[in-house]
């Protein structure tokens, strides 16, 4: 797996380094000016998840899939390496952005504001969800799969706004119900217990995403 991760990093190093540095600087400046670190973190998490996927879609762009799969690796190993590399890239981007945010002159955010447990968990939650949802689409449809997902998110947003106006009481009740459920889980498990429960749930979700990606990949003709 390590060799496969290294292969991807070697082949895409200009893209990873160039794009990664530019992105970290941009996000850190954006972050440092924010009044609401939570909202910016969620936005950032979404983008952290997109970047490793952009690396993987380059295989699609260069039609290099046939060569990759002619190498002495199984599709399962290939995918395992991509999930691990994806998480490494996301975490490095997150850590890099957070540390640089503190160092930006005139920043509004200090170490304690950025590394609140709840905020870190929120970022991990969004990274896991976006990456976990997008990976099977990228595996099955390449770059087009990612674009379809992003368009779908936009459409979902518009539909939600429309529905919110139509079914405001029902939606409010549903959100309140979900909030109450999460609140009761949190009070039942305690802060540490609920954090562990969340991480376990995300781990299971990521594993489900991996199994779905593998199912699709093993049936894909390249």
């Amino acid at each position: 797996m390590y060799r496969l991760m290294l292969k991807d990093l070697r082949l895409h190093k200009r893209f990873v380094v160039g794009f990664g540095i530019a992105y970290v600087i941009y996000m850190a400046i954006f972050h440092s000016r924010a009044n609401n670190p939570g909202a910016v973190s969620i936005f950032g998490a979404f983008l952290y998840a997109i970047i490793p996927l952009l690396i993987f879609t380059r295989e699609d762009k260069f039609k290099a899939a046939a060569f990759n799969l002619s190498l002495p690796v199984t599709r399962k190993e290939f995918l395992q390496a991509r999930y691990v590399l994806g998480w490494l890239v996301m975490l490095v981007l997150y850590a890099g952005t957070s540390l640089l945010t503190i160092a930006v002159p005139g920043t509004k955010l200090g170490l304690s504001a950025i590394f609140q447990v709840k905020l870190v968990l929120l970022v991990i939650f969004f990274m896991a969800v976006v990456f976990g949802l997008l990976m099977p689409l990228v595996v099955a449809f390449g770059f087009a799969g990612m674009i379809v997902f992003l368009v779908f998110i936009q459409v979902l947003g518009i539909v939600s706004i429309l529905l919110a106006n139509l079914f405001q009481p029902a939606i409010r009740t549903a959100i309140q119900g979900m909030g109450a459920f999460l609140g009761s889980v949190q009070s039942g498990l305690g802060p540490v217990g609920s954090a562990i429960a969340l991480l376990v749930a995300l781990l299971l979700f990521s594993y489900g995403s991996f199994r779905l990606s593998l199912y699709l990949y093993q049936r894909k003709d390249v």
Binding site: H12, R14, F62, K63, F67, S70
Partner: peptide, 11 residues
């Protein structure tokens, strides 16, 4: 060897 060798083009 593929009929149209394709690797990461900018590598």
């Amino acid at each position: 060897v593929h009929e149209t060798p394709s690797f990461v083009e900018d590598a």
